[in-house]
């Protein structure tokens, strides 16, 4: 995502409460290359997810998304599969940090349950607005703080550190 794409759209994949790190990045594939691990993302809940997800799609969930382990592969596989953002009622604290560190937006929306599977969703993370045009609904989300949005837009923490340490321009290599 670049700076001029601050508002983006995607198709919704909907999951429930308590989507944990272990179903996002199953432990028994954690030694495998990240692309192989990504193929098993969420398979315990929806075996078709990894194969059918399209770049720009959005993951919608309920409470405590990403709860559990500190393994950042849980966020990395979603990024690798092309997920544009995760929108959930609440997030596990470590996952939330990991997501932004890897350039994946994690957006808190109290009414995430309103979003139906397959629906088209417009997201304005800075303003804190989520729009479902087909249903003519606008939901409020917690505005993503500027420093996190900037870090994610740059591609994550490493790109930001690169700028800080080396004085290089940030590059988006995600």
């Amino acid at each position: 995502m670049t700076d001029d794409q601050k508002i983006f759209s995607g198709r919704a994949w909907v999951f429930g409460d308590g989507i944990n790190t272990d179903v996002l990045a199953p432990g028994r594939y954690m030694a495998a290359p990240i692309k192989e691990l990504a193929g098993h993302c969420l398979e315990a809940l929806d075996p078709t997810f990894a194969a059918n997800v399209q770049p720009g799609d959005l993951v919608i969930a309920g409470e405590d998304f990403g709860v559990g382990s500190s393994r950042e592969q849980a966020a990395e596989v979603l990024k690798l599969l092309g997920i544009g953002a995760v929108i959930a009622k609440s997030f596990g604290g470590i996952f939330f940090r990991n997501a932004f560190n890897l350039g994946l937006l994690a957006i808190v929306c109290e009414q995430s349950a309103t979003i139906e599977a397959g629906s088209k969703v417009h997201v304005d993370p800075a303003a804190g607005q989520i729009c479902i045009p087909d249903k003519n609904i606008i939901l409020t989300s917690e505005p993503v703080p500027d420093f996190l949005l900037e870090m994610a837009n740059r591609g994550g923490l490493v790109a930001q550190l690169e700028t800080r340490l080396l004085g290089k321009a940030g590059k988006n290599d995600q």
């Binding site: 950042e72 560190n101 923490l157």
Partner: peptide, 14 residues
């Protein structure tokens, strides 16, 4: 407190 690997790399560097 717990953090992920990229956060950890940030700590190792700074």
């Amino acid at each position: 407190f717990g953090i992920g690997a990229t956060d950890l790399a940030g700590v190792l560097v700074t």
